[in-house]
Design a protein around this nucleic acid. Structure first.
Length: 180
DNA sequence: CGTATTTGACCAGCGC
DNA sequence: GCGCTGGTCAAATACG
């Protein structure tokens, strides 16, 4: 329940980008990945290109990023105090795996996924103190479809939204012209 | 040289 | 308990 909530302003701007992607490729956002938690309210993302400012009290302070002792996080993994972070997924039909949503992401892992010939990539937002993560993976049934899963909420504004939007458009155009 | 990516290892959770 | 799988770390490497 606490998962997959509809995220306020800032995040919706991300989704706006995504929807653009999807729209351009003649597809719609679908969402859902984590079935159970997902259920209701099919997301109604809006295209907020501008920034909205953050502070939706990132509940994420939780466990990530803070101290990592020796190797792994110690008690971690939202384990004890099951604090679930906002998490939502959506699908887009796109040539590019990573949808540039205006934030800066650093890849920190990649895993092969069972039942899929495509690997899943793990990204973290590089903004200091922002512990948002996302996973990207392609559908094995339809390799044109990319599933992006966001986790957490950004504690900062989107970077260079407009310029970025321009990039998105260019990139989409490129990928399409090359694809054709 | 600073930053980002790659990639193998490590760890936890889950099912059997 | 054991093995499998997903998620993360961090050293090595690549790239600007």
């Amino acid at each position: 329940m606490e998962n997959f909530q509809m995220i306020p302003s800032l995040l919706s701007s991300e989704m706006g980008h995504a929807r653009l992607f999807a729209h351009f490729s003649g597809n719609n956002i679908i969402t859902d990945d984590d079935h159970h938690e997902m259920k209701e309210e099919e997301p109604k993302f809006e295209l907020h290109m501008g920034n909205s400012n953050n502070n939706f009290g990132d509940e994420s302070g939780t466990s990530f990023g803070s101290e990592r002792n020796s190797k792994k996080r110690s008690s971690t993994k939202e384990g004890k105090n099951k604090v679930k972070r906002h998490k939502f997924a959506f699908q887009t039909r796109s040539q590019v795996d990573v949808l540039d949503d205006g934030y800066r992401w650093r890849k920190y892992g990649q895993k092969t996924v069972k039942n899929s010939k495509f690997p899943r990539s793990y990204y973290k937002c590089t903004y200091q103190g922002c512990n948002v993560k996302k996973q990207i993976q392609r559908l094995c049934m339809d390799e044109g479809v990319v599933v992006t899963t966001y986790e957490g909420m950004h504690t900062h504004s989107i970077e260079k939204a407009n310029e970025n939007f321009d990039h998105i458009l260019k990139r989409m155009q490129n990928s399409y012209t090359t694809a054709l």
